[in-house]
């Protein structure tokens, strides 16, 4: 079975973002970029399926400019077999990414697609679901456990207030939540070997997709500074405020 896994290049989660002075976006000049943490979990999940003898091939895909090849090389170092960069300007919209991936998947015919549940830059949490809709595939988002028996994929999902388990027929799409696994480190010899693994570049035109804008980013601002509230002088006063003013208990 072939598994396709998606990878996004984002600002490293350790780096504080700063809004540009002109409010056009956040400033990414010379900041450390890395693979989106949820994508790392997706790559790890795919590699474990391969190590378990279930997956025969793991294909890593990223959509963006040539710089995202760095993250594809990381996926290859972690154990993906080959990589595909779909060459677009940076920050394509989710629906367009889903369309590009859908077109690629028609050609690649994987049985399972694993994506991160969201990217930590835009926090959209939508590309996987959109892709499943376009393919008319079943989906299991926010996965914390995956097991496969025959053509049935059983996925445990993290939902508000607990866990839900679904059974999907393949081909299917899974998006990863934090607790699905703990990603491995890329070893130094594997990073060297990854430089020789195949990395193919495809254009939207080759995939028959023309990109369209559905939204416009008007501005980006720093969040409002929180103001100090009031001091209460007793537990009684606190409980009263929480009950009758804030109404949160």
């Amino acid at each position: 079975m072939k598994v396709l896994v998606t990878v996004k290049r984002v600002i490293d989660y350790n780096v504080k973002v700063r809004v540009k002075a002109d409010h056009s976006d956040v400033d990414l000049a010379n900041v450390k970029m890395a693979m989106n943490p949820f994508c790392e979990i997706a790559v790890e999940a795919a590699i474990r399926l391969k190590e378990a003898g279930i997956a025969t091939e793991v294909v890593a895909v990223s959509v963006g400019s040539a710089s995202c090849q760095e993250q594809l090389r990381t996926a290859l170092a972690l154990g993906a077999d080959r990589a595909i960069q779909i060459d677009t300007p940076d920050n394509p919209e989710s629906l367009e990414v889903a369309k590009l991936l859908a077109a690629l998947i028609q050609a690649e015919q994987p049985s399972l697609v694993i994506t991160g549940k969201q990217a930590i830059d835009t926090d959209n949490n939508q590309t996987g679901q959109m892709l499943a809709a376009l393919l008319d595939w079943p989906q299991a988002t926010f996965a914390s456990a995956i097991s496969l028996s025959g053509e049935q994929l059983e996925v445990t999902r993290e939902v508000d207030g607990g866990l839900q388990t679904l059974s999907l027929s393949l081909p299917a799409l899974v998006t990863t939540d934090l607790r699905l696994n703990e990603p491995r480190y890329a070893s130094l010899p594997n990073i060297m070997k990854a430089k020789k693994k195949p990395l193919e570049v495809k254009t939207p035109a080759e995939l028959g997709v023309s990109l369209k804008a559905h939204t416009r980013l008007i501005k980006v601002e720093a969040p409002a500074e929180r103001q100090a509230g009031i001091k209460v002088d007793s537990v009684e006063a606190l409980v009263d405020k929480l009950r009758n003013q804030a109404r949160v208990i």
């Binding site: 973002v17 830059d121 980013l217 008007i218 980006v220 601002e221 969040p223």
Partner: peptide
């Protein structure tokens, strides 16, 4: 966006 470290104003087309 960015885990609440920035706020985007977005217009739907």
């Amino acid at each position: 966006i960015y885990a609440g470290n920035a706020v985007a104003t977005v217009q739907s087309l």
